[in-house]
Nucleic acid binder design. Structure first.
Lengths: 155, 155
DNA sequence: TATTGTTATACTCTATAACTATA
DNA sequence: TATAGTTATAGAGTATAACAATA
């Protein structure tokens, strides 16, 4: 969809703003990562697997906030590109340890650089203060339980 | 999905933050609007139709940033709830003018109050400064062409 | 010929249910 | 019995293509 400057009734709605900000970022992310043969979700999986040792698929899915069935497809794709390897955990043979291959580590490094550059350009219209504030605000929204929906029982 | 505090590799990624902030808002929005029998997208349609006179489906879709085929389904749903009426434009009989019914205006008023209260709670963990800054930052991201993807030709 | 609304269709992302192998 | 991975399936949400009515 082509998006113009939104009308006033929409630009004050958090739902509209978050949805379209996310849409716009997804587009730019796809464009920036396309030369690297992965998308933003796959890059996030690589980053999580690289940052933690010996993660099972379920553990990685938990960190990423996605379903284990969704994880299967993501690991399938990354394994198909030879960026990730599955191996059975010797300690619990139900678990698949997902690990980056050397090619996966290399790809991660290059794609991460592209992502950082994309985010820098994405935030360029904002002042440094506003950019920092945006990230901080999103972190506290995402990182902490909202308390919304529990109505009011902070007693 | 259950979401915990995200690991450090993710909490600095704009994609992750925007996706999960939007997911969380969508949940709270659904919960807040459920008693009113509509969801956030339908409420946005009502708000746009109410704010502009004599909007055709295509014009409303353009303002909302959605496809005209998506608009058909939304108007179908709202018409089924008797919140919106279609009528042919006398000036251009290809166009469907979508208008709020009296019940639609009433529903809009009530649901908007619920949405504002939900957003207030959603932003409650943030300082007033951060909340205002978040909204302002999202507005400039969504409202203005990013310039990203055009590489660098601002000459 | 072009535009508006519509329908049929398909694609992406995600989740639920059920199966298997392990514990 | 419960858990991890997998598969089949289904549901949102959205888009593309084609068609009818109108311009």
């Amino acid at each position: 969809m082509v998006r113009d400057t939104p009308p006033e009734v929409l630009s004050s709605r958090l739902g509209y703003l978050l949805k379209h900000a996310h849409l716009r970022l997804t587009e730019e992310s796809a464009r920036a990562l396309a030369p690297h043969g992965i998308d933003g979700r796959e890059l996030a999986v690589l980053a999580v697997l690289d940052a933690h040792d010996e993660l099972s698929q379920l553990e990685a899915a938990g960190l990423l906030g996605i379903d284990r069935t969704t994880m299967v497809g993501l690991v399938d794709a990354l394994e198909g590109k030879e960026l990730v390897e599955r191996r059975r955990s010797p300690r619990d043979r139900r678990k698949n340890i997902a690990q980056l291959t050397p090619a996966g580590r290399e790809r991660l490094r290059d794609a991460e650089a592209a992502r950082r550059e994309m985010e820098r350009r994405f935030l360029a219209p904002l002042s440094d203060t506003d950019a920092a504030c945006l990230v901080r605000a999103l972190q506290s929204i995402v990182g902490a339980p909202t308390g919304v929906g529990k109505e009011s029982d902070p007693a």
